[in-house]
Design a protein around this nucleic acid. Sequence first.
DNA 1: GGTACGCGCCTATAGACAGCATGTC
DNA 2: CTATAGGCGCGTACC
Length: 798
Amino acid sequence: MDVADLPGVPEWLPDHLRDDGIEELYPPQAEAVEAGVTEGKNLVASIPTASGKTLIAELAMLSSVARGGKALYIVPLRALASEKQADFEEFEQYGLDIGVSTGNYESEGGWLADKDIVVATSEKVDSLVRNDAPWIEDLTCVVTDEVHLVDDGERGPTLEVTLAKLRRLNPDLQTVALSATIGNAEALATWLDAGLVDSDWRPIDLQKGVHYGQALHLEDGSQQRLSVQNNEKQTAAIVRDTLEDDGSTLVFVNSRRNAEAAAGRLANTVRPHLSDEERGRLADIAEEIRDVSDTETSDDLADAVADGAAFHHAGLSRGHRELVEDAFRDRLVKVVCATPTLAAGVNTPSRRVVVRDWRRYDGSAGGMAPLSVLEVHQMMGRAGRPGLDPYGEAVLIANSHDEVDELFERYVWADPEPVRSKLAAEPALRTHILATVASGFARSREGLLEFLEQTLYASQTDEGGQLERVVDDVLTYLQRNGFLEIEAGELDATSLGHTVSRLYLDPMSAAEIVDGLRDWERGASDSTSASGSPADPQAEPPADSGFTTASELAENAAGSDDDRDPDDISALGLYHLVSRTPDMYQLYLRSGDREEYEMELFEREEELLGPTPSEFEEGRFEDWLSALKTARLLEDWATEVDEATITERYGVGPGDIRGKVETAQWLLGAAESLASEVDLDAARAISEARIRVEHGVREELVDLAGVRGVGRKRARRLFQAGITDRAQLRDADKAVVLAALRGRRKTAENVLENAGHRDPSMEGVEPAPDVSVDLDDGDTDTNGDVTADDDQSSLGDF
DNA sequence: GGTACGCGCCTATAGACAGCATGTC
DNA sequence: CTATAGGCGCGTACC
């Protein structure tokens, strides 16, 4: 189909596409147009990655906007939100306004209501609906990227429920759903009352194969000789072979450690193939990587990159990831060894893809579980860059002759699994039922079930019995914990319930937080026996186990003599409290850790909020310990322990620290709201703990770190120079400030201005000579300090 | 005596959304 | 209920 023949699109679009070198649509795109995407029709497109999904989305959104509408583009990852924003911003020249909204970022300059196209994550959209964002009603078109993720147990239900809500709010809404190739695209189409484009077409050939011994067996039956030389691994042989053809390789492995180890080894394979010029540019990038942070991960990555290899996983910080992705796209880095982060995420195609590990550890399966066909196909789909490579090759690695056949059967020739709704699971319904009631989508049990009828789950199952049963369990749970009231069949969210829904908390997290805080106020004496575990946990839904109901408000109102002062709650206690909620991704407890944290628990049990579960309750006790480990990490961060020490002590990457800190910040913010909601007096302690973790500073720096432009390091330097709070900074001797900030005039001016200094100008000011500021060269003060504390407390016990 | 290698045993295990109100070194 | 790579200690073979 020629771009001139597109019905319903703005008149500038055909020319715009031609300028981009697009004269004709790809076949699946043409099918989509024939199905009416540009004329407001619903559509499900199940097509491979990189076969033009984005254009289908654009056609739908632009034509909808051209008719005076407003479009929403839902992405699964924050990283994709910014990528799509960049894509769509080229339409700004035609007067369109693009906006982005994710948890940590909101586009500035004009509210989202004024935007023509809004990009957001599914959770953010859910949250916007819960908080009654007024512009939601103006939407005329919603595009969902990667809809097959409704199959995901944790995040799928959010997408499902959110789509159902959007469609309910606005029955005329055009719904376009983009999916990877899946087994049951027609089921999605039925659910969304949509036309269907289901195609395998790719703009560039993809040849799948399995490597074993000295040969690469391809799916068309041919074989390529690809010999493994002296001692090298199969992966190395493939990488070398690709390099000889001047191509790059993406290697998928199943753990972070494997990614790092493989990158280190493959660096040796790549090194001899680099030109001098490449070596020079790679050295520069390696230097930038070292600048991002001075952790071991950072060093290892820099070493590998200097040789043209890299690893990529979620433990990397944002800066690291971007540098690696860019260098790979620029073809400087020849090999990237990645965990599945890269397959789901951003656009980094490569000549060849190697799927080295096809099994992955899965705690719920109790061991290694094979990857799904869908996942493997998604990884393989990264092979071949349109316009750059003649074709793409995706290779699985077999370790035996039998495995060759197995891999062909299991992945190369197999069709992807059907997508199935995971909505009927209790944890998902807990949060969505509360939100559905709180935001007025349902006012009775029947209304609730009727609403759930609009989900994929309902369209995929014939017997409603299962769903109904879980719904009743969840309603009971929500009622018992004081989130909902049920009266004469009427459902009503309590004010606590509304708060929880708006805060986007899992109700179970909210219950845990409220109970923990309340338990503290009630005093320690009766808490050891106060575990709310039902007598027979087996008979109760798992959601209930171990929690006193949050509705026992009246019980402690009387107050007793052993009430404790809420200001005495320690930061560790609060960090532990939020770390044990289901909203915090827990740290893995390694074998050696168990003993260490049992000891730690023994020493600091007093500080924790709520009764420690019995050691015989295996699962709960384990969770309690790993929450303690997470809490310790946060405490270290809030005690100015430096990054490198933390990564080493807890076995995490630099990016993980950021993630934990961010989550803790969010949950503590939520805890603050909850405390005031239920009249608990802990707000001050929580707020301080939150600010400390936010800036990563000890108590005495909280005030200083609140000044814009002052982080944990600058705050500490100022403090050492004798400036201990914001007020002092406001009237400080400029010479001292300048010296404390190591003579950086511009920084000092900024800081003083933000602190409200009368005359921030640094002109003619010289750093005061008697102020010494040596904290970042080596692990002198802050770290040394903390390490000493640490030694003291642990040594004292042996 | 030193080194190189191979074997068996032990260990450890992917990803990342959200409130609210603004900004690290 | 499922696996496997890598690191380490140890024993053997060889110079």
